[in-house]
Design a protein around this nucleic acid. Sequence first.
DNA 1: TAATTCGCTAGACCGA
DNA 2: TCGGTCTAGCGAA
Length: 802
Amino acid sequence: MAVEKARGILLDIDYLMEEKSIIRLFIKTKKKTLVLRDPSFEPYFYLVVSGNAREAAKKIMEEDFYGVKVTRVEVVKKKLSPEKEPREVLKLFFNSTKEVKEMRNRIKELPYYEEKREYDIPFTKRYLIDRDLQPMSEVEVEFEGSELRSIRVCGDGLQELKAGAFDIETLSGLTFSDPSKDPIIMASFTNGKKSVVFCTKKIEKKYAVLVRDEKELIERLIERIRELDIVVTYNGDNFDFPYIKERAKRLGLKVEIGVDGSGITVKRKGMDNAVKIKGRQHIDSFQIVQILNRFGIVNLVKMDLEAVDKQLFGEKKEKIHASEINEIWHSGKGLERLAEYNKLDSEVALRIAKEYLPLFVEIGKLVNQTPFDVTRSGAGILVEAFLIKKAFAQGVLIPNKPSEEKVRMRIMQPIKGGYVREPKPGLHENLAVLDFTSLHPTIIISHNISPDTVNCNHKECEKNVSPEGQHFCIKRKGFLSANIEEIFHKRKELKDSLKKLKKGSREFNLVYARQYSLKIILNSSYGTLAFPRFRWYNRDCARAVTAWSRKYVKWVSERAEEEGFETIYGDTDSAFIKIPKGKTQTDVKEFVEKINSELPGVMNLELEGFFKRGIFVTKKSGKEAAKKRYALIDFNGNLKIVGFEYVRRDWALIAKETQRKVIEAVLSEGNPAKAVQIVRETIKKLKSGKMEKRKLVILTQIKKPIAKYESIGPHIAAAKKAIAKGKPLGEGSIIGYIVTRSGKSISGKAQLEEYVAEGNYDAEYYIKHQVIPAVIRIIAELGYSEEDLIEGGKQSSLNSFM
DNA sequence: TAATTCGCTAGACCGA
DNA sequence: TCGGTCTAGCGAA
């Protein structure tokens, strides 16, 4: 057979489990997706032996491991740890991944066994790292029939892949949809250019397609999914795909949507599923939104498509609840509305993916993983994957995962965190906020912190000592510090080149996503040292990082005071300073420059901004000032509210709104009398019974199984009452409740919002437990008391402000 | 399967 | 009915 050549995008990877485990690559060329096998890559792990490695290599080939055979052994030179000299170790090859799993337990019995390494790296991940292949990159392949002969990355992979999204609507019983009886009644599909809605009932919409029955509906949908390289859903992992799979099974249909004709695989991932389609990338936009939320790129309480659409794109999409879907279906009235809703669900899911997938593709290239995996991984996993890749490239064996026992030990010894300075309470004028850019990573880089540099034996390194006493080598760059440094500089370069590119251009977006992917890895890097389950966990290193962070933050404050500024506050990586009369903003800038000239390595203090006014309040209990809550206003009138009830979801909107107005009156207008007036009016309206229901809802999440609660708070009480009515609530549900007039305790009065009539609320509760607590300590800073807020109360202290 | 610590506040719970 | 203690949730960084 002749050798053929092709170019395409490395779209996916999996492996076959025949008598041998064989890697398959899915390469999307202009014409089709090639499925190529690479039998040249065999499962393996490392065995470190006591005594002579070559002799052990001979012996091990003769060993019988209850039927498992080492097919091949290589003696290779590897570093057991970055600071050590390379040493000969055995690389043991096997026919299948199954044998790797069996063997890694049996091997311990060998007399020359010292240690095993890298026995738990998933086969496909192993392949991508060893071959240094970046999914979604352009590759050039040579192949014979279906066998791969060679592969190399030759470009960024800017070729357009076909992306599309779908969404299904189902009927439901009393509480939820059950695929064993509730049919799929509608399904939408979009490829970004054109959308269709399949339905078994006739709908007066241009995009609607009438199908005979549910079976045809699924068939038509599958047909469309087969066009795609990137299949987007919103919660397809846990709902759409498992649902379709079950319905199809009952209808005698096969969901053969893999490029190779295979079905879908539903993998359990803890509490979650992950649905994989071979040869295509299934991207669940819901997973994307969850990750964005965790990384702090967006901040969402509710994560339904409506809330996401609103926050990400500013759109207002209608929500149709499950019960209404049943109604519409049975009455036949409103099918157009439902179709529109269904269609938009697909379109918004696709839009989310189009907006953020480039970021995940870039992260994937950085850590050699597919977008499928990256969009379903936590930050820690990504950093770990990055370090595994680096270790491989540098000939270092990666550390093993800690045993559960070790993990428990580590958890029992927590690592002290950042320093929070007690603020000076009150209203302050003319502030500057300074903060360290990427504090933890820059400390790691600048002090060369790494598990392989801590407490080295060199005398001259003892001067690089942390406030907690550990010192770090200065003669050799550490594994962790060097690799983080590389990311740090690469990001700097990319950010520089970004300045030269046209905003919104394809090139710009690519570079932007790339630098952002580096930022995510960088910001998560400290976690590798401090997280008990990580391979690179190191308590001494982690303690040193935070100890230095505390030192530097305190030091900046001290230096500021020496320079004649007043320090108001500081948290972990920041210093809030007051510019006194006689000093200017320029003086602050000069101060920052001075500090930077004194800081080591790449550490950098940044001027975050100047603020016209700021308020810090005392704690409810005691006289000390509250940390982690303050409000600032800049010279353009922009408010920054931190930590206060206003930013918390577990407070009623009326309390939050009132607090915001009060803060605004105080900070922007310097008008405490107005603030008092605002509160009085709110209280008046609450008393009148006319407050809108939506402003009284308190959102709280159920964080664990209901049965495990020792103390029944209002949200659990409300949830229990709702469950009794047949509402499916449990761990993870967000409860929106209102404190009504009927009941004894607060919990007794709490009811799920949807069961509460407009006007049924406990005014006293909302006044005394919501509005007043939210504003009292702000107003108290200005000399007012609680009586001043209640209408008819005395206004004596007002004078002190006039 | 999986990031952390620091901090604030509410409301239940419990015994006097 | 009170005041202290504990459980619980969420936000800052």
